[in-house]
Simulated scan of single mutants.
Amino acid sequence: MTTTRIPYADLPVAARRAVETRTGPALKVESEAEGFNSEIAARLITQAGEYYVKGLRADHRRVWTQAREAEVNPYVHGIAPALLARVEAAGWDLLIFEAVDGHHADYRPGSPDLPKVVDVLRRLAETPCPPIELRYAEQRLARYAAWPEDLDHFAGNALLHTDWHNTNVLVTDQGARLVDWAWATKGAPWLDAAYWVIWLIASGHDPAAAEEWASRVPTWQTAPAKGIDAFAIANANMWHEIGGQDPDAWTAQMLAAAERWRNHRTT
């Protein structure tokens, strides 16, 4: 479910003052249109530099995602933009990140961004799972697995991002960076590559080609074939639930991709 986006200027004065105490006065504000989870998403240009601010009202039902991002950030240095401050003021919970110049990853066949995504997947897989509270992959997929024993394939001790929407991958001159860690999860190390497969299929790859890209991530080699089958089935079930009876065009595209992959793995 998307969250209604409001302009930075519509924040309470006290909230903006709390942000700009840390960034310096905003000389220019550029609203960010992409993303589903934040009520505020804006780039602030100040005399001291540029910053990215995102946030939710303190009483928003998903405000816990702000805390999750703040907790994860110190452990993903070099993979994610650095979090500079968390501000809680005037009924708002706001995160201030370093601004990163780059473009959203292009997942289409032949894109020069694909090797860079493989590289950030590899670097993430090499990152130790932090000692913070995270949901477990087998918990998140429990409602969608075909059989209870399938969940054993998803368990593990790796830090996972899990949301490989292309807007969450910023391609810079220094490589790809991952943003929006709201759904950070602990699980089997191959799962992030598997989540990426569905996005590749939705972007025009056939399932075999998508899996070939995933296979370039070393952790993919640790995945049992039955585990990949179980994951493809569970994700198709998940997208069916998300889509409901009348999915919008974007959700229908993702559902179709998940179904193609499930059929590829099971027929």
Rank of each mutant, 00 (worst) to 15 (best):
59 D>A: 10
72 V>Y: 09
70 A>V: 03
42 A>M: 05
28 K>N: 14
74 P>F: 09
93 D>T: 14
13 V>K: 15
19 V>R: 06
29 V>D: 00
124 L>A: 02
46 T>S: 00
47 Q>I: 11
133 E>K: 14
110 G>R: 04
75 Y>T: 05
32 E>W: 08
20 E>V: 06
89 A>H: 07
29 V>G: 01
21 T>F: 07
126 E>R: 08
46 T>Y: 12
6 I>Q: 13
84 L>C: 11
123 R>V: 01
97 F>I: 09
73 N>Y: 01
118 V>L: 05
19 V>F: 06
31 S>V: 15
53 V>N: 05
17 R>V: 15
45 I>K: 08
126 E>N: 04
59 D>G: 06
82 A>F: 02
66 Q>H: 10
72 V>K: 08
63 V>I: 03
37 N>P: 02
110 G>N: 12
100 V>S: 12
84 L>K: 14
89 A>R: 05
91 G>Q: 02
51 Y>S: 12
126 E>F: 00
5 R>F: 10
132 I>E: 02
58 A>E: 07
38 S>P: 03
11 L>W: 08
83 L>I: 00
124 L>D: 00
15 A>R: 10
118 V>N: 04
70 A>W: 08
6 I>S: 12
57 R>E: 15
98 E>Y: 01
93 D>R: 13
43 R>G: 12
9 A>H: 09
27 L>A: 14
76 V>E: 01
18 A>H: 13
57 R>N: 12
96 I>H: 06
41 A>G: 07
22 R>A: 09
70 A>T: 05
73 N>M: 07
85 A>H: 10
84 L>F: 08
101 D>C: 06
71 E>V: 06
110 G>D: 07
83 L>P: 02
49 G>V: 01
21 T>M: 13
125 A>Q: 11
115 P>W: 01
5 R>W: 03
64 W>F: 11
5 R>Q: 13
108 R>H: 11
95 L>N: 11
40 I>E: 06
30 E>L: 09
8 Y>T: 09
94 L>C: 09
44 L>G: 07
132 I>S: 07
124 L>C: 05
20 E>Q: 15
113 D>F: 04
70 A>Y: 07
99 A>F: 15
105 A>E: 08
121 L>I: 06
96 I>K: 10
63 V>A: 01
30 E>Q: 15
125 A>P: 02
95 L>R: 02
56 L>P: 13
123 R>H: 03
43 R>Q: 14
133 E>F: 10
77 H>V: 15
5 R>Y: 11
121 L>E: 08
123 R>C: 00
52 Y>R: 12
86 R>D: 13
61 R>H: 12
7 P>G: 02
58 A>M: 04
35 G>F: 00
56 L>S: 03
11 L>M: 05
14 A>F: 09
24 G>C: 00
20 E>N: 11
54 K>M: 13
55 G>Q: 09
73 N>C: 08
11 L>R: 05
59 D>V: 06
104 H>Q: 14
46 T>D: 00
131 P>A: 15
91 G>T: 05
97 F>L: 11
31 S>D: 15
114 L>K: 00
37 N>S: 15
70 A>E: 06
101 D>T: 08
76 V>N: 03
46 T>P: 01
9 A>C: 05
69 E>H: 08
124 L>G: 11
